[in-house]
Design a protein around this nucleic acid. Sequence first.
DNA 1: CTGAAAGCGCTAACAG
DNA 2: CTGTTAGCGCTTTCAG
Lengths: 343, 343
Amino acid sequence: MATIRDVARHAGVSIATVSAALNESGPVSADARRRVWEAVEAVGYAPNAHARSLRLGKSRLIGAVVGDVTNPFWGAMVRTIEAVAEKAQYSVIIRNTDELAERELDIIEQLRAQRVAGIILNAAGSDDAYLRRLQRSDLPAVVTIDQWHPDLGRDFVGVDNRAAGRMLAEYVIRLGHRRVAVISGRKGMWTADERMKGAVDAMRDAGIAVDPTLYIQTDYRSDASYAAATPLLTRRDRPTAIIGCNNDITFGALRATLDLGFRCPEDISIAGIDEVPWSGLVRPRVTVVVQPVEDMSRQATTWLLERITANDTDQPPPRQRVFAPSIVLGDSCAPLSATVAPT
Amino acid sequence: MATIRDVARHAGVSIATVSAALNESGPVSADARRRVWEAVEAVGYAPNAHARSLRLGKSRLIGAVVGDVTNPFWGAMVRTIEAVAEKAQYSVIIRNTDELAERELDIIEQLRAQRVAGIILNAAGSDDAYLRRLQRSDLPAVVTIDQWHPDLGRDFVGVDNRAAGRMLAEYVIRLGHRRVAVISGRKGMWTADERMKGAVDAMRDAGIAVDPTLYIQTDYRSDASYAAATPLLTRRDRPTAIIGCNNDITFGALRATLDLGFRCPEDISIAGIDEVPWSGLVRPRVTVVVQPVEDMSRQATTWLLERITANDTDQPPPRQRVFAPSIVLGDSCAPLSATVAPT
DNA sequence: CTGAAAGCGCTAACAG
DNA sequence: CTGTTAGCGCTTTCAG
């Protein structure tokens, strides 16, 4: 592939002039500039990004470390991250962690070796050893997204997850439900704990006796949720409503409900967090709390690019932006009075 | 960030020894090796990928150029591509084209400048100028996926799209339908043309008079499909069945059908191509032809890595692998005899 | 305004 | 077995 030397030779100038012309980083005569561009065209030149990065000591790559692109939540995130990055001439390397802390740390290490300029990170781990390893000072710019870690000292973009859990619980409580199950992600994960806490708080505030066997934390996965929901639904004092703390969990709970021969919402009311794909055609239309995914990923990417561009000396202190979730009503929840009581 | 020099100094050896030790590319005494690894640990060294790529004249990056990660079809593709690439220590840069040929060419040019080692490409354009620009000889290794271009001379992985269209049409014909509409992607796009042709062939083979006003090619997008379906459904001699040639199109057609007050499948039968997300809960359960997305992306990535690794001299000739699609029956199609006739 | 030359961090001869 | 050195392609002083 053509190098800057080929262009210089072809244009009859020095390589320094070519560089100055292409980057507009120095004075070049109109004539030389024209000849350079012609030569670029003629030899099919494109500057070698690796040489450039090496010389400049910085690359135009950013990493997007997400749970799983296959989940519409992360799919939408990645889509927007890519769109915003592209405008600023950055490319995004995508990596899925399946929310496995060990994998995530590995990936971060690899991205560091690749000298990405920055990382948008779904930091899904939680224990101390994990956090310590995330603290290492020689990481590139990082903006965390979705999961918050109080002491990490990084920019964070997410939603008020406690409010999300609370909204859903208050909604079903208002419909009269008293025995409400909540299935959330694994313990220690910020979003999972917060969503659970928000829901439980709402119950407590409503004067409902808190039954811990109704509150389950497992993986944010539909099979885990299915497995968790099944025993709940076959108990004698089964809940009359279930809250699923992400889309996969909601999906699993709904499947379990229907597979066991219950109707939703006639027998069991179900509501969840996160958008449901093809929601217009999913029956019942699930009541969900949604996050402004696009705004979130746009903010995260903007902040990241800002940090990448800023001098080391004027890096802003860690910022947090917490968006408000909103509820989208469907018909997956019925008033308790209209619910067929457990026998 | 630490360089190989820091490691060498710390270990009390030369940089060549460090390189040899880390890459196992030369004889190094056990003692030196140990000291090198200790030094690496101590200074937090990770080899600079840009320097490496520059020196080696090749990178460990591949580009995944897809329609839109947000679509579950592409989401699954990207997921598998990343998984397979990771095992071989390659990173994937993701780019969405929205199937816009101009954007796609731009992106390819950028990836070329970035010196990616290879590209997995959804080549969505079709005109001659486009193809000519894709032909340029100085591109890295390329494997095309989904869309086939006979003369491109690149590896290709996809499905038998004609069979996919045919399967669906034969299915509804077997149910007795005679007035069957088909909505596909834009003209000139291989998958769109093939799926349409497969469906139309099946009609012709069944002795059905071909009514061109029932065969529409538009964008692979739900709003385009919605707009296309609406007039079809409001005609007096409206079709009794609709075939949607990708998931978005099917979704749009279904929405239009329901919005107009028709029931599916009682009034209109609908079937489509591509997986439907949350299909277990979408009502009606749509009958679809699905592609083995995971096998396809695995094959594409494997071939790409193979080409990247092979010497220029022993590059295999262009290969094609065409997977068979399969049909998954739902309840979105009813026998014509059970269908409420247009008034 | 233009050119020569240094050097980013690494690998691979090659010499010791 | 180990060290010295050239050079990958680029940007950027610094002289002319």
